[in-house]
């Protein structure tokens, strides 16, 4: 069993299934209403992936990173993660596009502990499935990448994006 990145972060019997990038791509591919939620820890490399993934799903970014996305050529919503996570709890919420709540959300680019707590909210109080594609295993998600080395993770994201949207 994968040990959470922060070893004491063992929430209980229900823990995330570890997924590879190709499994993650399949899960995302199958979802009908998916959204990616991005945190403040986004650098240029990851940003490139987010821009690509935006072709496949709605993207919410941390307001502090909004500036970096100007001119990225896609519609994005900037909202604090606590606020977005709160909205996801509400089954009657209409989503950012007015088409209804989501069936899958992927988290990327957060401080480990903050993401863990937000995933816990959804694990216990929402129907939406969660996927963590950060560098470290997040037991509170439904599906999570394993604990990865930086290079492994970068390659993993690259693979995920290629499988999902293809890359020229």
């Amino acid at each position: 069993m994968t040990i959470p990145w922060f070893s004491a972060n063992i929430p209980g019997p229900k823990q995330a299934k570890v997924v590879t990038p190709s499994m993650a791509a399949k899960i995302m591919g199958k979802a009908k209403r998916k959204m990616m939620i991005c945190g403040s820890k986004i650098d240029g490399k990851i940003q490139k992936h987010i821009v690509d993934l935006s072709k496949e799903m709605s993207v919410v970014v941390a307001p502090s990173t909004l500036k970096n996305f100007s001119g990225a050529g896609f519609e994005l919503v900037a909202k604090g993660v606590v606020e977005v996570t709160n909205l996801l709890r509400d089954e009657t919420w209409k989503g950012f596009d007015g088409k209804g709540n989501y069936d899958l959300v992927a988290y990327l680019g957060f401080p480990y502990y903050l993401e863990s707590q937000m995933l816990s909210v959804l694990k216990h109080f929402a129907k939406v499935k969660t996927l963590s594609i950060g560098r470290f295993y997040q037991p509170n998600a439904d599906y999570s990448f394993d604990n990865l080395r930086e290079d492994e993770w970068e390659k993993g994201l690259e693979d995920l994006v290629s499988l999902l949207v293809g890359r020229k």
């Binding site: 229900k14 996570t85 709890r89 216990h124 109080f125």
Partner: peptide
């Protein structure tokens, strides 16, 4: 809005 540390 609750974010449990633990399921138990």
């Amino acid at each position: 809005m609750y974010a449990p540390f633990c399921d138990l």
